[in-house]
């Protein structure tokens, strides 16, 4: 199958959700940053920070940081395929840790929403670092669509 890129379906919505995802308190705590998006795909990164370390002796980032990064990037990949704003909720997330992240370098995560069903969205994600072809982790997740009446994004701020 060829991967011919298309822009995200609704750029205004995607940009709004991407910014919002990086500003929410827990994302700000780990320093999540938006990198790029296209139809079906999203990429985020976490800069290296000693507060996010799991093992001080090795300096390797904690798996929990990877969980946040992969969960958020996967959710954003779903929004790259949506035309209208809706709330989605993670049903399940599975992560395989392939190697420890090299200390001192940012970790990228790119996620693909490979099936957008009427009720369920399916995603797969890879966490990696620049200059190393061996990924840090693989993640697969499913999301419930229209999970609640609560809105996602900045529109409802202050409402």
């Amino acid at each position: 199958m060829q991967n011919l890129p298309l822009p995200v379906l609704n750029p205004a919505l995607f940009e709004d959700v991407a910014n919002w995802f990086c500003q929410i308190p827990h994302s700000a705590t780990i320093g999540l940053e938006f990198v790029m998006g296209e139809r079906g795909h999203a990429t985020l990164r976490v800069p290296y920070n000693t507060a996010l370390v799991g093992n001080p002796r090795s300096g390797v980032l904690h798996g929990g940081v990877m969980t946040s990064l992969i969960d958020t990037t996967s959710a954003l990949s779903v929004f790259s395929m949506l035309n209208e704003r809706e709330a989605i909720a993670t049903l399940d997330l599975r992560i395989d840790y392939l190697r420890g992240a090299t200390p001192g370098q940012p970790v990228y995560c790119t996620a693909e929403c490979y099936r957008l069903g009427r009720q369920i969205a399916f995603t797969r994600a890879t966490a990696y670092q620049e200059g190393n072809d061996q990924p840090i982790a693989h993640g697969v997740a499913t999301f419930m669509r229209e999970s609640s009446q609560a809105q996602l994004g900045s529109k409802k701020e202050g409402a």
């Binding site: 308190p25 827990h26 780990i30 798996g63 929990g64 940081v65 969980t67 969960d71």
Partner: peptide, 9 residues
């Protein structure tokens, strides 16, 4: 709570 924070915890 953030799903990632729940998972990390």
């Amino acid at each position: 709570l953030h799903g990632g924070a729940i998972g990390g915890f």
